[in-house]
């Protein structure tokens, strides 16, 4: 029975990893921008949920109606006015990547600094839906279960969008070859901006969900950016279901390793798995070819 609970815990955490990786996959896999300030959208979503709840008793889920559109617009503006000028300026892909990393690294400090000045450095948390739910005999917290369900629904929706719609086809085409996409009449700058903005919006939603069960502070963003990056690389750049699978795999490995070997080894297991994937399947676990 306890093993089942461990597996369940791994699955729930893994779903969250998958969720945060989905948005990065849109930004890095489709819009082709390595955004180091990606996690700041999560921080923003978390703070929004926190303040809405503490100051006005607004339901954290309802706060998404504010934070998600704001994150979408904010990321769109970042892409449009900070990052796409770099595309025009850069002589080649390497220079572009170096430039975007520098710019988004700067952005990370700007957002983190603003949050620090505005809200101070302390850890924040609130209690919401910390209700035990009986799931096949095991007890899980409702807030964690909800984040997991959201992750799965979003991943499946994105998968469906990319596989079965014209827009999704265009997004995949951009991910594969932006020049070729232009040649079949895809408005690459517009759709890239859209994908980038959607990635940020997903991260803000993830921030709301995560803030329901994990405490956070102004410097939390980069932690999630790195986690998301690991999952994206494991799952395959541009692969939405792969991303979810890799997140689940990581969560499961962590939970099982912690239970069967030692909880202190979670991080080691994390990186061992990551290195293994890099060595065996550098293109990602769930990439074709």
């Amino acid at each position: 029975m306890i093993l089942f609970e461990v597996v369940l815990s791994g699955v729930l955490v893994g779903g969250m990893y998958g969720l945060i990786a989905l948005g990065l996959n849109l930004q890095y896999g489709i819009a082709r921008m390595m955004n180091l300030a990606y996690g700041e959208a999560l921080m923003g979503g978390a703070y929004t949920a926190f303040w809405f709840f503490m100051l006005w008793r607004i339901d954290p889920l309802a706060s998404m109606l504010f934070s998600v559109p704001v994150a979408f617009c904010g990321n769109w503006l970042i892409y449009r006015y900070l990052l796409s000028p770099l595309i025009r300026r850069a002589a080649n892909q390497e220079i572009l990547e170096a430039d975007t990393i520098l710019v988004t690294f700067g952005l990370l400090f700007v957002f983190q600094g603003l949050a620090l000045v505005q809200w101070g450095g302390e850890y924040r948390g609130y209690t919401y839906l910390a209700v035990p739910i009986d799931l096949l005999g095991a007890t899980v917290a409702l807030n964690r279960l909800m984040a997991f369900v959201a992750a799965v629904v979003l991943a499946l929706a994105l998968y469906w969008l990319l596989r079965s719609t014209r827009l999704g086809g265009a997004l995949r085409a951009i991910a594969i070859d932006p020049v070729a996409a232009q040649l079949v009449a895809v408005d690459v700058p517009r759709l890239s901006a859209l994908a980038f903005a959607a990635g940020g919006a997903i991260m803000a939603a993830a921030g709301t969900l995560v803030s329901m069960f994990l405490s956070f502070n102004a410097s939390i963003g980069i932690v999630y950016t790195l986690k998301a990056l690991i999952v994206v690389i494991m799952g395959g750049v541009g692969r939405m279901l792969g991303c979810l699978m890799a997140g689940l795999l990581l969560g499961l490995a962590e939970a099982l390793g912690a239970y069967l070997v030692d909880p202190g080894l979670t991080l080691a297991i994390n990186f061992a798995l990551f290195l293994l994937v890099l060595l065996v399947r550098p293109q990602g676990l769930f990439s074709r070819g």
Partner: peptide
């Protein structure tokens, strides 16, 4: 007597144990 890593995101299995 057990440790867990910095930045752990779920301690419920340990609590159950």
């Amino acid at each position: 007597f057990k440790s867990y890593p910095l930045g752990a995101s779920d301690l419920s299995p340990q609590i159950r144990e």
